[in-house]
Nucleic acid binder design. Structure first.
Lengths: 232, 232
DNA sequence: ACAAAAGTGTTGGAGATACACCCATGA
DNA sequence: TCATGGGTGTATCTCCAACACTTTTGT
């Protein structure tokens, strides 16, 4: 019986970055392969094989760090992708042959997504990432493997989480103004909200707590900062 | 680098069964091991290793069929479980040694859940299942591996799906009365609904369509049957 | 004093909730 | 004819959406 004796398992991280100009995604560019000029280095999500003794969540965090040096991003599992041919595409062959011992092996991957404030997280490439970029969600070209699909489903998951108001506040910046929170909602859900109504709703959420602290360095009335208490 | 060269991947199916008396779960009892009287056959969710050339969804459907002979159950992926020690518990060792070539190997599993009407689906044990049972959700003892945990999370996923009204109607019986639908909601969400209000809401759902058909064989006014159109 | 974003209440309407009686069937 | 669940409408209330001006700070 041909069971899953030899199957690779990976994690892929879809890290959304947020500032006042919209939503971006963290992508890495593969290193070129020195002795191969047929290889077009592709862009992909940060992801790699898991190690034998680490948990899945742990693997996602490690892989994200290994490739982009980001730490402390809250990652949430959203889906496993296991099409037997998901890494068999021609465009991906040269690269896989250069980085894997068994490049033809089937790879099942577990997708994680996260959301960070662009001001707080500054990725730097490492390992097999030649470079790292925050790419605009609207302007993503072809990615390696089935990563366009993974990205779409990750964004869908993020959106659903916000819509259902089951917000993991782990996904949000630690300190924020209500205007920032509102425009995050607006850009993710692609909807406008009324400022006063939005604030009324936030005040009902007992896990959103006002701090004794104000914005500084702004050229207008400084806003109150808020934080969240995940244990509520 | 110790990568995931040798790692097993499985699927586990959490099939909830519904009739007017509440929610049940489909469990299988492991066969005894002839030459081993230290082995206590355990109860577990239907699940097994995936094959090399099948997709994950396909694997879930096949495994469910192999063990319980059920076909046509709509299964939805909800989470991957990958704790490195999830199959290392003492209680599971004897069994794994009897069924696996590499019993000590790490196993990552993808969880699927489904919901069926108890009247329409009659499982029969096959493969390594000695017997099959619909167990009452409130009365589940210790299961093999981390299956108690998987079960809890599956029920949580089902509940969330119903709460958010993103109901996959694939999960519901093909033909149903509004009272049946209501009491399904009630038993899953553990809440009572008002009959008239519930019906008003259902009438707004354009994918719930009334049939020209009535209940038969009941000792009271026969109810109209409804179905759903998933393409709406 | 001006620019720029922060902050704040009220009202009308839609949608949710509460509630009780007649109907069709099989025994 | 009786027992059983099926099926229906209305009044109230709650919650959500719409809406505009004053406040605080830096320059």
């Amino acid at each position: 019986m041909p069971v899953s004796q030899s199957l690779h398992l990976s994690v892929d991280c879809v890290v959304f970055g947020y500032d006042n100009n919209g939503i971006k995604v963290l992508l890495i560019n593969q290193k070129g392969i020195p002795s191969d000029n047929t290889h077009q280095p592709l862009t992909q999500l940060p992801g790699d094989l898991i190690l034998m003794n680490e948990g899945l969540q742990q693997a996602a965090e490690r892989v994200l760090f290994d490739l982009t040096q980001l730490r402390g991003v809250y990652l949430k599992q959203f889906h496993a992708f296991g099409d037997p041919n998901r890494v068999k595409d021609l465009k991906d062959r040269a690269w896989l042959q250069s980085v894997r011992h068994l490049p033809d092996q089937r790879v099942v991957t577990i997708g994680y997504y996260g959301l960070v404030s662009l001001q707080d997280f500054h990725p730097r490439p490492a390992s097999f990432a030649r470079s790292v970029q925050w790419a605009d969600l609207g302007e993503i070209g072809q990615l390696a493997y089935d990563h366009n699909n993974i990205l779409d489903q990750a964004f869908e998951a993020l959106r659903e989480q916000m819509e259902s108001h089951h917000i993991s506040f782990e996904l949000l910046p630690k300190k924020f103004t209500l205007t920032q929170l509102q425009s995050l909602y607006e850009v993710v859900l692609d909807k406008k909200f009324d400022k006063r109504n939005f604030r009324k709703n936030v005040k009902k959420m007992t896990h959103v707590i006002p701090l004794d602290e104000k914005q500084t360095g702004v050229t207008h009335k400084p806003a109150q900062l808020f934080s969240y208490n995940p244990h509520k």
